[in-house]
Design a binder for these strands. Structure first.
Lengths: 333, 333
DNA sequence: CTGTTAGCGCTTTCAG
DNA sequence: CTGAAAGCGCTAACAG
């Protein structure tokens, strides 16, 4: 490829100074109509495009944002990405996407690289970092928004899903259907959403005057395969269970698979509740009862918070709690 | 946030010149062990991180790539993103993600913005641009790789899925099960994968000596809702159909839903074949027979091609055809 | 309305 | 082994 056309090239070709070109490129108004037209013509005919990095070097902002998610294969997170990218695009920002694969090392490396790219801000989804590393890294960004993770740091916005309510709702629904031996396949213990959903589960049981049996609680990586594995083990070790609350829909899909293979029919033998209401939840067999949260809404709300903070500084919304609801389908009627 | 620590700060604090700092940051070997250690210490204690944009301005490369997909909500594309991001990360590149939403205008805007970000290369997945715009835009990039789209342009790599084979395989399978009134819900006519899958469908029918009925061919946006809609219409207008080839799994899921609502049981009344084998294909009811292509493999292969071209210039692999296979499940046994 | 002068933070020469 | 000078492409501040 040939070398890039620069502003100097345009200035020379149009017979004006660099500054004049800069002004028309940036739509400043101190340029006469005639000059502007002439310069614009040269720009178009030479196919000039401004260099974002040269511009960024002087302005100290890049119109560039970071978005870090744990698992883009999970429709929930790809939905968040979609929502976030969509509103970023509408505001003229580009977004770097990083997939941590649930690996804190990689998350750290990703954040470091975003920092070196001089992003104007970053959204971190379900960070798996310990508090200290997290605060250290995000405080390097001009501003940041955390999804499903809290931390004390000025300049950081927080968007949380009402996970305790979600865990409670799921459990209460099962309780209401007469179940009293309810197991839970929880996510990684380090994940805050896991902790909160689990807390909701416990709260609902306690409120119903039921004991909490630690053997009925299992943790797994929130992907289909691990959900399947965990369900197989849990149902084998605790055959008395008649219902399963799952950390998310992926885990629930795994659990559904496990039940099918173990010959336990759903919902007759085991009722299953998921979390997230991913598009496929309505399409599996049986259709999944689940806690509904809109990933698009979360992504775009988080992005709105981020942009607000970038533009308005400290005055912006610091915390947003995303409500959840239960969608009742056949896996737990 | 405080102002960033710069190389000059480090130089001053360590009592060396700018150049020496630059050398230790970039691991050049012309630095004495002692100096290196001292400088490194100052770097660590001050938390210095190099500025990618300043560096990029002089080196003319940014370690930054663009990835543009039509619909990140589609598990196939999020899989491609995952595969691509993964291998980019392994090679030290960051990736800008753009979601076009199947909108050519937006795709154009996204490419323009990537160009202004001075990415070192870009991967374009299922471009919806006309040939002229496409060539014009991608030839601005140092190098590019196209997925599921061909174009004549030097310096552009192409990764195609063997879509004609896929369309043929799907149709032949149905033919083999005795179906002879097979409809197809194809994707957007402008999309090359649509065209090729459709061509495969036609080829299979022709080879079997069957006529091609235009009324049995329908096009739709490849998302669940539109697939549902198209299937409802197609089955209402052509009740004689006993099988449906679908552009992709999303469309097939919609078709499954449509059949359920119309009281046509699958596969007894209507057999359905999808395309992509997204993770959920095995989990819907009935499990979907589909053409399998691995999105992770596609994403990472495309990224490997891109990186190869970036590093090795013109000598790199220019074209790669990804094979497909059929996975037979209950929706079309 | 237009141009000149600096300099963003870094790397690339080229000299010691 | 180390440093000084120049400049990547652009914008901010000030002059005219």
């Amino acid at each position: 490829m040939a070398t890039r056309v620069t502003m100097t090239d345009i200035a020379r070709a149009a017979g004006v100074s660099l500054m004049t070109v800069s002004r028309v490129v940036n739509n400043k108004d101190d340029v006469s109509k005639g000059t502007r037209l002439r310069v614009q013509e040269v720009i178009d005919s030479l196919g000039y495009r401004p260099s974002g990095i040269a511009r960024g070097l002087v302005t100290q902002h890049t119109s560039t944002l970071g978005l870090v998610v744990p698992d883009i294969d999970n429709p929930f997170f790809s939905g968040v990405v979609r929502g976030a990218e969509n509103t970023a695009y509408a505001e003229g920002y580009s977004v770097f996407l990083g997939n941590t694969n649930e690996d804190p090392e990689r998350e750290l490396a990703l954040l470091r690289s975003l920092d070196e790219k001089l992003v104007d801000g970053a959204i971190l989804c379900s960070s798996r970092l310990d508090d200290e590393s997290l605060v250290r890294e995000i405080s390097r960004f001009p501003t940041a928004v955390l999804i499903s993770r809290q931390v004390h740091n000025d300049g950081t916005g927080v968007l949380v899903i009402d996970d305790e309510a979600g865990g409670r709702l799921a459990t209460e629904h099962l309780l209401g259907s007469g179940h009293c031996r309810i197991g839970i396949i929880s996510g990684p213990p380090i994940s805050f959403s896991s902790q909160h959903r689990l807390a909701g589960y416990r709260a609902a049981l306690q409120a119903a005057g039921l004991p909490i049996n630690p053997a009925w609680v299992r943790h797994c990586k929130p992907v289909v395969e691990n959900g399947y594995q965990a369900a197989v083990e849990l149902l084998r070790d605790c055959p008395e269970l008649t219902a399963l609350v799952c950390h998310n829909d992926m885990v629930a899909f795994g659990a559904l698979q496990a039940c099918a293979e173990l010959g336990r029919s759903v919902p007759q033998d085991v009722a299953v509740v998921g979390y997230d209401d991913v598009p496929m939840a309505a399409l599996v067999s049986p259709p999944l009862t689940t806690i509904k949260v809109s990933p698009h809404a979360i992504g775009s709300q988080a992005m709105r918070m981020l942009l607000e903070r970038i533009h308005e500084g400290g005055s912006a919304h610091a915390r947003f709690v995303m409500p959840v609801e239960i969608v009742i389908r056949e896996s737990a009627p």
